[in-house]
């Protein structure tokens, strides 16, 4: 308990973490400003135009949906992108911030913010301690490596999760308030809120996954920079390099290989039901299981390495 208290105190005292919290708030502010600057209260004329455009879209897509549904009677979800029901009037209220239609995209951004926040904070929290000798000093006091690393991991993950949850609530609440005052809230029924809560939870899971991976890489690499290098290396070599080479030699067909890329799994994980935002036949379950396995494997590797390592 003392160790946890000390780690919580250390977490909030670290200058880098304070900086990252400030950056998170600044980025949030920029997002809010951007949304507000592009939104105004809809006029009657705007409503009429939106209703006409939505009706046209529904008319255009109804035959496609019917054809798709006839071809896939047992897999209607593949026809979601043609579903006329998605073309609600609010979608065509240009220059108006409609909470119902826009919050999904904004939560995608939230996932990115939380992912980077968690990654940098966790990498720094463990990396700088290992690099500076702070961890060694702590082990001279509490010569139990698993307890010391566990307390650091538990405290940091717990705090990142708590900060992410609070930030998410403030984030969504702020955009709801903006929509209420200068835009349009739209149709927000129980189903919508349940869907939004699920999406926010999944965005938080992305942040948590990034945090755990950063902690593990920085622990194994003994430095904050190891985590940053690992992330950049993965993106450049795998996400970009392998894709480019595979495309050049036509190694992958269609979406066959998308499940090899973490970015595709994050995209699938954050997809909302009925929107068609999915890649091939990838599902939440596949991506969720992958995230869980990755997180457990990374954490186990970090703890095993740290338990055996010579601290020189």
């Amino acid at each position: 308990m003392n160790l946890i208290r000390a780690e919580v105190s250390r977490f909030f005292s670290r200058r880098f973490i304070q900086l990252m919290l400030s950056v998170l708030i600044i980025v949030f502010g920029i997002t809010v400003f951007t949304v507000m600057s592009q939104s105004r209260t809809p006029t009657d004329e705007m409503w009429q135009h939106a209703e006409r455009t939505a009706a046209q879209a529904r008319d255009n897509y109804a035959p496609r949906y019917d054809a798709c549904a006839a071809a896939n009677p047992d897999r209607l979800e593949v026809c979601a992108q043609y579903d006329p029901a998605q073309f609600v009037t609010e979608r065509f209220l240009y220059d108006v911030f409609v909470f119902h239609t826009r919050i999904g995209d904004l939560v995608m951004w939230l996932a990115i913010y939380l992912g980077f926040f968690g990654f940098l904070v966790m990498a720094s929290f463990i990396g700088s301690e290992l690099h500076s000798g702070g961890m060694t000093n702590l082990l001279l006091w509490r010569p139990n490596r698993m307890a010391v690393l566990g307390a650091k991991f538990g405290a940091a993950v717990g705090l990142v999760v708590a900060i992410s949850a609070i930030f998410t609530a403030v984030y969504v609440g702020t955009f709801y308030a903006i929509a209420s005052s200068t835009g349009l809230v739209g149709r927000v029924d129980g189903y919508f809120w349940a869907d939004l809560v699920g999406l926010c939870a999944r965005a938080n899971v992305v942040g948590l996954l990034m945090s755990v991976l950063a902690f593990a890489i920085a622990t194994v690499g003994r430095h904050t920079a190891a985590a940053l290098g690992g992330l950049i290396g993965y993106v450049v070599v795998w996400e970009l390099g392998v894709r480019v080479v595979a495309d050049a030699i036509n190694a992958f067909r269609g979406n066959d290989a998308e499940h090899l890329f973490l970015s595709a799994h994050v995209y699938t994980w954050l997809a909302r039901p009925g929107t068609g935002d999915r890649i091939g036949d990838m599902t939440w379950t596949d991506s969720g299981v992958l995230f869980l396995v990755l997180a457990i494997a990374a954490t186990a590797t970090a703890f095993t390495t740290f338990r055996r390592r010579d601290l020189i």
Binding site: A6, R14, R15, S132, G134, T136
Partner: peptide
């Protein structure tokens, strides 16, 4: 361990922590 005090090479303390805070965190952990 509670009977042994040690420093092994000079630990690099966090610059923005005060001396008292640095020790207080250790005292809390121990």
């Amino acid at each position: 361990a509670h009977r042994v005090g040690a420093i092994v090479e000079s630990p690099q303390f966090f610059g923005n922590f005060s001396g008292a805070k640095t020790l207080r965190l250790l005292a809390m952990a121990g």
